[in-house]
Design a protein around this nucleic acid. Structure first.
Lengths: 171, 171
DNA sequence: AGTGCTACGTTTAGATCTAAACATAGTGAA
DNA sequence: TTCACTATGTTTAGATCTAAACGTAGCACT
């Protein structure tokens, strides 16, 4: 997969300029590397998780519950708000986790049709066993950045995220 | 979708520290924003493309062919090397594009079982019609970055990509 | 009380990916 | 020439997502 250096984003931009002079290419050296890095991190995470016996979607779900602290309970709506997937995907994720005994669904008490999702002891144990492997590996992957590089990158990514989000939803 | 500010990556890291002191969290403020930005760019691209009557996978395929210059022809192996998906996915993409008259498959002459994929006139016209909308929109999304911010981000993303790739494949 | 609407969660159909299996052209060694 | 292997592309089964449809509890208004 990573055996061959990828076609540099700068060369993609240059090819567009060559083929279509004037085509806007300012985004390519940002958007393309972000897509590539996202895929690299995703694929690497999947590799680490395969050995831990859990899939990335389930890890995501269990992590959100775990991070919420005792009683490790959130509504499906809250879960959907805290992750990058739709309510439909959350529903399916929760169903799968419940099926595997990693989480439990109970009716909420606060109104409407709220469903509460809670980490089971088994789910708790699984996240305890896998989170350090996952995050440790990823810390390693970014460890080549010098402290000031890391700080600069963190700040720039945060700024870009805020800017893009503002453009997507000005209201 | 983007109506609610996301849970800041820094707070995800802090929650892990609170819940599991000592858990490595150095990557979170880099990896999480990269995933989020990747999704924002993907979703936005899909919106732009919906109006242009093309899907992202097909755009990707047609773009690679278009950028290769006349005769807008590449083997399926080359296509797989130039994109972020597997040979299987390329095969399916090409089949779909061929089905829609946007690309054409011909046997190669250079050996083995090489298949060559060529942009059709219809495919060429479609990419001409959509590429500026797509890239123009994305240029807009990143336009809030000051020149020196953009340069710094481009360089840091490139460095991180190279570093991560080197760790994934030291050979 | 009755009705229309909203909020919430689930289900469904379909899209696209991946890993692995499959098929076979072509190569290299004995 | 034969056989084992490699390179290339395709197919397949399954996973997981999305958008939209669906189901219905609960709310607000008349």
């Amino acid at each position: 997969m990573a055996s061959e250096p990828p076609y540099p984003a700068a060369r993609i931009a240059a090819a567009w300029q060559r083929e279509r002079p004037g085509t806007p290419t300012e985004s390519i050296e940002i958007v393309t590397p972000i897509w590539r890095l996202a895929k690299l991190f995703t694929d690497d995470r999947n590799r680490v998780l395969r050995e831990a016996g859990i899939d990335a979607a389930t890890l995501d779900l269990l992590s959100v519950l775990r991070r919420s602290g005792p009683p490790y309970t959130l509504s499906t709506r809250e879960l959907a708000e805290l992750t990058l997937v739709t309510a439909g995907a959350i529903s399916q994720r929760v169903a799968r986790a419940e099926n595997e005994g990693l989480a439990r669904r109970t009716p909420g008490t606060t109104g409407r049709r709220t469903v509460l999702v809670t980490l089971t002891a088994e789910g708790h144990a699984l996240i305890e066993r896998s989170v350090d492997a996952v995050l440790g590996r990823e810390a390693e992957l970014v460890s080549s950045l010098a402290p000031e590089e890391r700080t600069a990158l963190v700040d720039l990514l945060e700024k870009l995220t805020v800017d893009v989000r503002r453009q997507l939803d000005p209201g």
